[in-house]
């Protein structure tokens, strides 16, 4: 399935969350929730929290955070829930770009640029 790489992390996923593997039922995060940091990282924080706060200085989707951290989305959601409970991030649902059937031209342009970059 995979070879034991030399650059895995020694941290196991359950140690990041203290053994929790599922987020609370009322968590507001789904894959595309935009997360914005509300404060700067504080010394002594868990390094993942620091990374999330730096990453979310601009609004960033949950799935992007997960991809940047290299963590499963479930684990990322738990980390984000902790930060949200502490008031360090806020969650916002994305703009409904297609609510009237016509996509936003900006979005379409970004899609185009993204497709070209592939």
């Amino acid at each position: 399935m995979s070879r034991p790489g030399r650059d895995d992390a020694p941290d196991r996923l359950y140690t990041l969350t203290g053994g929790r593997s599922r987020s609370a039922p009322d968590t507001p995060f789904d894959l595309v929730t935009l997360v914005v940091a509300e404060c700067d990282p504080v010394p002594g924080m868990q390094s993942e929290h620091t990374a999330i706060l730096r990453l979310c200085a601009r609004p960033t989707a949950v799935v992007e955070v997960a991809a940047e951290l290299g963590l499963p989305v479930s684990i990322t959601r738990i980390l984000l829930s902790d930060l949200l409970a502490a008031g360090r991030v806020s969650a916002r649902h994305p703009r409904k770009a297609v609510h009237n059937g016509i996509p936003d031209p900006d979005i379409l342009e970004q899609v185009l640029v993204g497709l070209r970059n592939l």
């Binding site: 390094s47 620091t50 990374a51 730096r54």
Partner: peptide
């Protein structure tokens, strides 16, 4: 480098 957080490793320098 912390692979789970691929941020610049020099970033957390302010921590005392």
């Amino acid at each position: 480098e912390t692979p789970v957080a691929p941020e610049p490793p020099a970033l957390p320098a302010p921590e005392p």
